[in-house]
Design a protein around this nucleic acid. Sequence first.
DNA 1: ACATTAAGTGATT
DNA 2: AATCACTTAATGT
Length: 221
Amino acid sequence: MSMKKIGWDEENKLALKNAFGFLFSEELLTEIETHGQLFAVADGEILMDIGDTMQYMPILLEGAIKVLREDEEGDELLLYFLESGDTCAMTMSCCMGDRKSKVRTAAERDSKIIMVPLDKMSDWIQSYADWRTFVFDSYSVRLSELLESIDSLAFLNMHDRVYKYLKNKMMVNGDAELNVTHREIANDLHTSRVVISRILKSLEREGRIALHRNRLEILEW
DNA sequence: ACATTAAGTGATT
DNA sequence: AATCACTTAATGT
């Protein structure tokens, strides 16, 4: 793991306040600054892998993270994206028993993450109502997102799943131009590259996207 | 110029 | 929707 530890400079403190000021008290914000370590992760880096033991609860300050599940053959399936202000529900369940991750998390783009030690995370549940709210709310939001991805998996055809995936990706990256290959999309959606190429071609014919090498634009959403 | 990787496509199941 | 087999296009050395 080559995450770079960075300091709590004024810019990052401001980012924390912007992302969490409406949720957390001054007191809790200070606690986070003192006990939370701030890290910078680069696009594509794996933060946590399946089987890894959790020691920290990650909170996303800036950027986007994708959460993936893996089958026996090593093929992946995207569960959902995390954005600024989100946290990983896996670590919460880890706090209550099994400390091994059942998912893989990778940086969707350059991001900044706050790592809160697990003992602090559970202490704060006792001492801060706003923290408690945050943890339980996140848990339920994560659960909804999981249900949504099950729905698309079960009820949408591949064509619609691809389009939905692209829109989601555009949303978390804040850009209608996506730097992605057909192979990467196929991996995230657990299908083959040929299938993705065909679907993208048909989306292009419908005028909804434009295709380039290693890159595509969403024209309509 | 050559090798490698990404993407396009017909045919078959 | 998946797989095979092949082609074409873009990019790196």
